[in-house]
Structures are given as C-alpha cells and as structure tokens.
Design a protein around this nucleic acid. Structure first.
Lengths: 124, 124
DNA sequence: GAGGACAGTTTCCAAAAGATACCTGGGTAT
DNA sequence: ATACCCAGGTATCTTTTGGAAACTGTCCTC
C-alpha cells in the first residue's frame, strides 16, 4: 500500500490519461486515418506504414477501450473486421487537428530552437 | 546508421515530435502552471506536486530545447532562476487547453467506456 | 497442396521513461 | 557550526513502450 503520490492538481488525472492514450506512438495517426471512413486492419497498417501488427493491435485496443474507436465485426465468411471512430472519437478530431496544425505550422520554429539550443550547449 | 523507418505519412514527423514532448508525464502541467506568470524551479515543483527534481529538470530542459520555455537567470547573489513561457510557448496554450477541456468534459464518457470494455472482456 | 491474405497472438528483446536515493556547492538563518 | 533552501547532477533501479520474428487458423487462389 504505497501512499499514492497525490497530485495536488485535479486537472492532472484526466489530462494525463488522455495524453497517455493519444501520446502513444501511433494513435493520432490512426485517428486521423479513420476520419474519412472506417478501415480494415490491414488497410490501416498499409496506410500508416512502418507500424507492426502488434503495435497497431495494441493501439486499436486502447482506443477501443476508451470508447474512441469501434471494432465492427461483420460475420460474413470470412469474417471481416472494420475499425471506425465512434461519435466520442469524432469529437476528438478538432482538438487533435488543432494540435497537429500547430505542430506543422511551428515545425520550423521548433527545429530552429533545437538547433540554437544545441549550438549553445554542445559548443561548450 | 540505421535506415530510419520511413513513415509514409509526412504528417507523422512533426506531430510525433510534438506529442512526444507534450505527452511526457509533466510537460503539460508545467506549461499550464506557467501561463499566469514565470516561476522558479522550486515554486514549480511545489505547485505541481509529486514530481521529482530529476523529472522536472528533464521536462524543463526539453521544453527549453524546443523553444517553448525560457530559462531566465538573474545574476543576483544568490543567482535566481526563473522559467517562463516564450511567445512560441504561449501559442501552444490554446491547443493544449482545447485538449485538456476535452479530457475534462469527456472524462466520464471515457471512464464509462473503460468500465464497459472491461465488463465485456474480463468477464470471459 | 502450396502459398498468400487476413486478423491477430505469443515470445523475446532493446530502448526509453520515470522513480529513488545520494552528492554538490553556494547562500542564509539560528 | 549546523542545518536547511536553491538548482541542479549522478548513479541505479524498475516499469513501460515499441520492435522483430515466429506462430495460429481460416479462407481463397493457383
């Protein structure tokens, strides 16, 4: 029974949980790729590129667990599995896009800051 | 020289870098705490609570490296170190707040989804 | 009946993140 | 003098994350 590190800030808990989810390496890419329409597992894998089955599986499980993505099994022969954003997941698109827009627009500024930082600190 | 895993999606690179930075355990808390005014190291540490020196140090270094936070050393005796958001860092406040608002507003929905998920999958 | 697509699972492994604890070295209060 | 504040640094440990590769098992095509 460790005395849970008490974070004074109540903002911490849900915010950290969200950032944990969408901060994982592939989840935002998955969400963005599902915006237009639902996709099958290997469609997603191909579309994203560079992701292993395991990583994609666990990413999808996490998003599914949090109710952001829905796993739709169509019991045809052979069964077909599609992944789609839930309504809740769709409400995340706006904040995520705000963030990705920022990242793209300020990419140069961040890279410049990094270069400057390294110039000042590696030079020593 | 590893042949960098090439991600087809060009959105990936800057977005991943940003999420890497702000997805780290304490960085959003730091940014939010610096919104009103600059703070000293131990002020931040106390205000956030539950963070170790090492984690706070590396968080601040990362934010500084990316040009989001500025480290201001006032050469008084004893020297005094303040951390403040840069103008670039301030532009991140809006997207971050959009995300944190989402997290807080949809906290219940996410928790409900988790409970449902676990009920369905652990039950087996 | 060999091979490949689909949708994974499992095992093993390396790298990164985070926590704990201890050290520095000057300044300040008692 | 002693002990604590500030702003860290270092060393070690555990946990988490992510990647590689192999394996399942059903279906379809050649």
């Amino acid at each position: 029974m460790k005395p849970l590190p008490r974070h004074q800030d109540p903002r911490c808990v849900p915010v950290r949980r969200l950032l944990q989810t969408i901060g994982s390496k592939w989840s935002t890419l998955v969400v963005l790729h599902l915006e237009a329409d639902s996709k099958r597992f290997s469609e997603l894998k191909r579309a994203i590129g560079g992701v292993t089955q395991k990583s994609l599986t666990s990413t999808l499980r996490e998003l599914e667990r949090d109710g952001l993505v829905e796993r739709v099994v169509t019991p045809t022969i052979p069964p077909r599995v599609d992944y789609a954003l839930t309504p809740l997941g769709r409400t995340l698109l706006d904040p995520i896009k705000a963030l990705t827009s920022w990242a793209i627009e300020n990419n140069d500024a961040v890279l410049a800051a990094r270069a400057r930082y390294e110039r000042l600190n590696e030079a020593a």
